[in-house]
Amino acid sequence: MQEIQKEALLKTLEELKSKGYRYLKYITAVDAPDHMEVVYLLANIESNVDEVVKVSIKKSESERPSVESVMNLFPAADWYEREISEMFGIKIEGRKTRRLLLEEWNGDGFPLLKSFEWGKEYHKR
């Protein structure tokens, strides 16, 4: 497992891709108590090795966390990036805003954040 800063994301993934990790299996995120994590799961199909890349992003009061889009390297990232941006409010830099995938509308809360309250009414933005 590699833990990296978000500035190094594209470079790290590019290096891995040139080493044969061409298959992006999964992207997910974790709302850890003090930071936000985005996890990339890659695989080398020929030699059957998996590699996990974990990006930690500092949380800030004023701004939503953001991470670079990896669509150009791995087209498979498309729906996973849209999913984490809807569920965790993570901004995906370098992608046009598109219609929501899983949710009908995005309120002022993001469901998979720990700060999301059950039963509270969230309103359309």
Binding site: K25, Y26, T28, A29, V30, D31, V39, L41, A76, D78, W79, Y80, L112
Partner: peptide
């Protein structure tokens, strides 16, 4: 604490 699930049908439909 967190459970992320990769659904094969999700990526196939994409």
């Amino acid at each position: 604490y967190r459970i992320g699930m990769r659904s094969p049908a999700y990526i196939n439909l994409s």
